[in-house]
Design a protein around this nucleic acid. Structure first.
Lengths: 352, 352
DNA sequence: CCTTGGCACTCTCGGGCGTGGAGTGCCAGT
DNA sequence: ACTGGCACTCCACGCCCGAGAGTGCCAAGG
């Protein structure tokens, strides 16, 4: 009946907080359940193991730590990690030379694809976990040029230039031969009518034009529009997300059951779920963290995900992040993800 | 002293061959060392286990089978597998409806990239192992068109069309502004001088031109050549090989030590070794098989690799294949790889 | 000479057992 | 409120044992 009993709502007192923090730090470091003796030595407080056991008992009751079995030390629960990252963690900014190193590898004169891949590589190399980057959304990319290049017979290469630095091309099979100048005219027509629009708007515009032109029976323009329509179709078929460094995850004891690994790798292959997860973070303010089941995807139950959106021109273009075991060095991973996002944004930006 | 003792050189007698064959088939099927009893039941010969033990003893001496420990059944050694695939195996052709199914998924109207990816997907889906496809070598691809598209300021998009159906493009940063018509002239110049050459020849030609033009001080042409040179540079940076279905490999007991898996997956990521292996097969006649260490790459010691080159227009363009555990159903995998190679070749061919 | 049944032997795999170590929970003393 | 002490619990490890599977060898029989 002592009033020292803490309910779930009672904020932790300072001592408990320091102990939880020490516990998480210890556990993150060497992956073993932490006992009261070790904690007594490393927490900085002058307390005996027995006192610490009392506190641990409280923490356990609150669901912040748990012990794998009666006579093992304590391990943080997901809620414990959550509290830790929310209010106990002190994120120390990266060393300036680390930042410089990252900066060098994300230079503005790479093209978008290379930049994105470098970012993912860096994330995984620095954190020793899996890196991922949601590539810049193309929806709001302004179309700036369309060209048609005649290849042979009825084959035409359609080239779309967006934002002055992204290129897509597609080979189209036509229903009949078009002369070089016909193609030129079609391109001109489309450029005139679609320049500056994003892909979605362009497609809508094309549908509108479609009607108008049909009425005038201008077959060339109709063909132009159809060509454009086809050039824009299934434009989302391409890679929308990049993963690297998945193999790093095989090194972590807590994930090393082949079964879990297979599920994880299949998730990487399918991309869909992870893409959804990333898309959900796209409008978060800064770094976002999912611990264990928080992500809502079963395969990630033993993982944590740290993400950050990156922006260009003040507008959020995509998200990047890392996936690793729940037991990860958050205080290091968080700034790495944060800085990488900013640098990627900067690189994409200053390149315009 | 009995003269029934067989040396390594002695060809196996019929009985031994049938037994080895039965042993491999049994072992491939359920992965357990095969004992003399089982073999007696399944080999089709009317022999007692004891007789079979004698034969097994001979086979063991010849290095074709081995037993994991004294009282386990026998398991084929790599040399045993080798003999099996070389002279015991009867490859039954695929069912016609299986072929049809493959054919449907490798339709000539897909572009090269998609075709290659589909082929790899099919290989891994059908065999339940990892599929790989060496993408068509570009060295002998005839250049058929070069265009420069001005993007903005000093940025130019260079477009190379090869073989009338492959496109590469690259954004180039120039040293100064060029007008639209200057770019047009440069493109014309390059088209005139390089059309029909393959990339290597084109590059050599450019170097030759470089000298000639310098002497005439025609700066525009010089710029054109430089542009072309840059457009052709590091063209091998791109993806040269596609892997799919690696996760299937996690299902095989003999590879399921996390360590082996990690090595394997790292090999997939690095691509270099596997690319080398594939390139070595490129001029083999038909299906080629590497069992265990035969591939010469340590990571593949517990794997077998089955490859086949595919050709277009009678010319070998690339190689495809699968990687799986040494214990694989060769009699099925071999025709699958074979047929897929032919179908991929056909699809690439009839598309021209 | 080949084949076969018989038999002893060997090895793995799984369960049961005891021990040592680590860590806890609780209690009584300060 | 903190602490030392103590009993307790649980895991990890090594050990042994028995069952099961399969072999190698031998001697007998066609």
């Amino acid at each position: 009946m002592s009033r020292s009993q803490r309910t779930n709502e009672t904020p932790l007192n300072d001592r408990a907080r320091r102990l939880l923090r020490a516990l998480v730090e210890n556990y993150v470091q060497d992956g073993q359940p932490v006992g009261s003796r070790t904690l007594a030595r490393t927490c900085g407080l002058d307390l005996s193991p027995a006192s610490i056991r009392n506190v641990m008992s409280d923490l356990e009751e609150m669901g912040l730590v748990s012990s794998p079995h009666t006579s093992a030390g304590r391990v943080p629960t997901p809620r414990g990690y959550r509290l830790f990252v929310d209010s106990l963690l002190e994120v120390k900014p990266l060393d300036s030379h680390e930042v410089r190193l990252l900066k060098e590898r994300l230079s503005p004169d790479m093209d978008t694809r290379t930049l994105v891949e470098s970012a993912s590589d860096l994330l995984s190399a620095v954190t020793q976990m899996a890196g991922m980057v949601r590539v810049p959304k193309r929806d709001h990319a302004a179309l700036c040029q369309i060209e048609f290049l005649k290849l042979s017979g009825r084959q035409v290469l359609a080239i779309l230039v967006m934002n002055k630095n992204e290129v897509q091309n597609r080979i189209l099979q036509l229903d009949r031969d078009y002369t070089h100048s016909e193609l030129q005219q079609m391109a001109n027509y489309l450029n005139e009518h679609l320049a500056g629009l994003d892909l979605r708007q362009a497609r809508e515009q094309i549908l509108r034009e479609m009607k108008a032109v049909r009425e005038h029976m201008n077959t060339l323009m109709l063909a132009a529009i159809q060509l454009g329509e086809r050039a824009f179709s299934d434009e989302d078929r391409e890679e929308q997300v990049v993963f690297t460094g998945q193999t790093h995850l095989m090194g972590y004891a807590e994930l090393s059951s082949v079964d879990k690994l297979r599920n994880l790798f299949e998730a990487f292959n399918q991309k869909r779920d992870l893409l959804g997860l990333l898309d959900n973070c796209i409008h978060a303010q800064g770094v976002q963290i999912f611990i264990g089941q928080e992500s809502g995807h079963e395969v990630l139950d033993d993982c944590s995900v740290v993400t950050a959106p990156y922006q260009v021109d003040g507008q959020v273009l995509g998200v990047l992040g890392v996936i690793g075991p729940t037991r990860m060095a958050y205080e290091r991973v968080i700034p790495v993800v944060d800085v990488t996002a900013k640098l990627l944004g900067a690189a994409l930006n200053s390149r315009n």
